[in-house]
């Protein structure tokens, strides 16, 4: 063979390369995020919102449940009521701070649970394929056949209001889409040669999923579930707005929006405040999610 030269030295010779700093995928993601100032800024706002909800008891200037007949529906800046008062004379600022606790919990928890449940189902379906996949995905398809708000309204409407029922129905809403994303990502990875190679070593299903699949599908799943947080916050507030979430007198942004609606002709500006909080939170979560998507280089 004239075209292939052979010398024993280049077979055994050890190739060396210039020493470079080696970064893992997640380190790379972190590196990219560190220079994405927009995402960092909105991330900071998200953290601020979360902190203000967590430390609401310390931050709230007044008792959020303390009503007062003479102080009903006062405008912004009235006396010590920095954001005015609601229809029962309660301090809106304090109620907003406390309301964040329930609104954010109702928004974030369902996505969290759905990510774990739906993600696991999707990975299992995607990796095993065949009948297991059929069974899981057909079931998911059924729930996918409902517009999200309709499904949430249907389930919590039938079960009756309440925070727990609301969160349960929202969890059910988010399991199917997360399951689909996980399934798609997993079945793509599953067909790559390195999974085949892992099988060729005699590794078991669980080991392959844990070592080889998870690291490759976690990115898309996390990006997708982070984009669902904003949707979930909107839906949760929507449920409360319909009277299906929080029960009065608990403060909640959606519920506040609903009750303040009666005062629309008296003090229109105050009525809009809870919505602003929902809007800002939702925008921030959305933009952070977009930033994560860019940093993780995920196409959904």
């Amino acid at each position: 063979m004239a075209n292939i030269t052979m010398s024993p030295s280049d077979a055994g010779a050890v190739q060396s390369a210039p020493a470079v700093m080696v970064r893992s995928y997640w380190q790379n993601v972190g590196y990219r995020l560190r220079y994405d100032y927009l995402t960092l800024f909105f991330g900071a706002v998200v953290i601020l919102i979360l902190l203000s909800a967590i430390f609401a008891p310390l931050l709230a200037p007044m008792d959020p449940y303390q009503s007062s007949l003479i102080n009903r529906l006062k405008p912004i800046g009235y006396k010590d009521f920095h954001l005015g008062t609601d229809e029962l004379g309660r301090d809106i600022l304090s109620r907003m701070l406390y309301g964040g606790r329930i609104s954010l919990t109702m928004g974030i928890m369902p996505v969290l649970v759905a990510t774990i449940v739906g993600g696991t189902l999707g990975i299992v379906a995607g990796f095993l394929g065949g009948r297991t996949n059929m069974l899981i995905m057909r079931m998911v398809d059924v729930f996918y056949a409902f517009p999200s708000i309709l499904l949430a309204v249907a389930i919590s409407g039938a079960m009756g209001g309440g925070v727990v029922n609301g969160m349960l129905s929202l969890t059910l809403v988010f399991i199917p889409p997360l399951c689909r994303v996980a399934e798609t990502a997993t079945s793509q990875v599953r067909n790559l040669d390195f999974v085949e190679a892992a099988r060729a070593t005699g590794a078991g299903t669980f080991s392959i999923i844990r070592v080889h699949i998870l690291g490759n599908v976690l990115g898309p799943i996390l990006v997708y579930s982070s984009s669902m947080v904003s949707v979930s916050i909107l839906l949760a507030s929507g449920l409360s707005f319909l009277g299906l979430g929080v029960t009065p007198p608990e403060p909640d942004w959606g519920l506040m929006l609903n009750t303040l609606r009666q005062a629309i002709y008296i003090n229109p500006l105050v009525c809009a405040i809870p919505g602003v909080a929902i809007l800002i939170t939702s925008i921030c979560f959305n933009l952070v999610s977009d930033g994560m998507r860019a940093a993780m280089d995920v196409r959904l």
Binding site: S230, G238, I264, A272, V276, L279
Partner: peptide, 23 residues
Amino acid sequence: AVIGVSIPNYWLGIVMVIIFAVE
């Protein structure tokens, strides 16, 4: 577009009512 998908439309409705119907 981000605002479009982030905005609680029930709130937007109230704001529109405030602006176009009330004010």
